[in-house]
Amino acid sequence: MTGIISYLVFFTTMASILAIATLGLNLQWGNTGLFNGGVAAFFGAGAYGTLLLGGTSQEDHLGGFELPYVVALAGGMAAAGILAWVVGVLTLRMRRDYLAISTFGMAIVFENVMRNAEWLSGGAKGLRGFERPLRDALGDGFAYNAAFLAVVLVLLFATYRFLQVLVRSPFGRLLRAIREDETAARSLGKSPARVRLTAFVTGSVIMGLAGGLYATFYAFVSPQDVLPTLTFQIWAMLIVGGAGNNRGAVFGAFLIWAAWTASGWLLSRFAPVDAQIYTGSIQYVLIGLVIVGMLLWRPQGLLPERLVISQSGQAPS
């Protein structure tokens, strides 16, 4: 039983981290209509930034600043934000589907640079030399994982509250106004370009937070953590959960990650060894079918966006 609890703590930690990233994407896609095809890059910027700033000195790559953890994590988020700002300024004025392609390509470049720039990121072998905060006090067993889960849950909830407030604020109304009808918003004297950039950067900073937590959890990050698969997984979580609905985003993250891991578990249990080579492919086909199926039959997701009528002063959640 302790084993199951220990595993569930582990599972919930990863699901919560992914849920934070999904919330970031929800701000961009669900509320603002920005197709970010490069989630992995912002997640990765947070992960690499946190480890570089908070890690111990390594002979073969940059790092060794050994900043306090909170500062390092904030630095990781800032790294994601800066990357988003640069990408946003360059690409947000494009056609909306060009944005998808550009961000997708940008994430490939990010992975590629991390893989090659050994002086910066340790190259393909990854970035190590990071000590998890408070490890001396808590050890690295169950107590640590439980404490870390608590921190992640607090941050997930804080992110969720922040976004709920943001979405209901005048700024949130403006986001939806631009998403629905950009010309009308512009005619009211609003600057869609600037608003979109703000939403894009904010969402990316949230993804950076998720990335920073992810890297902390493993005390390691390598280019394999920022492959396009991650972008796809986060998108699947949002689409299935319900774009535009923050609860949907969190729910989708838990559901998809549970399905992803449970299907691997079930296949290992019940599929014959000879069939094991196919399990990865089958899993991807299933996930692809779920996504296409959702878009066809329930495009609003399991928990659809609810129209917010701000004037009525509806109480939050």
Partner: peptide, 10 residues
């Protein structure tokens, strides 16, 4: 766009 992403995977 996302549907095409899913289709590609399938």
């Amino acid at each position: 766009v996302f549907a095409s992403f899913g289709l590609a995977l399938i």
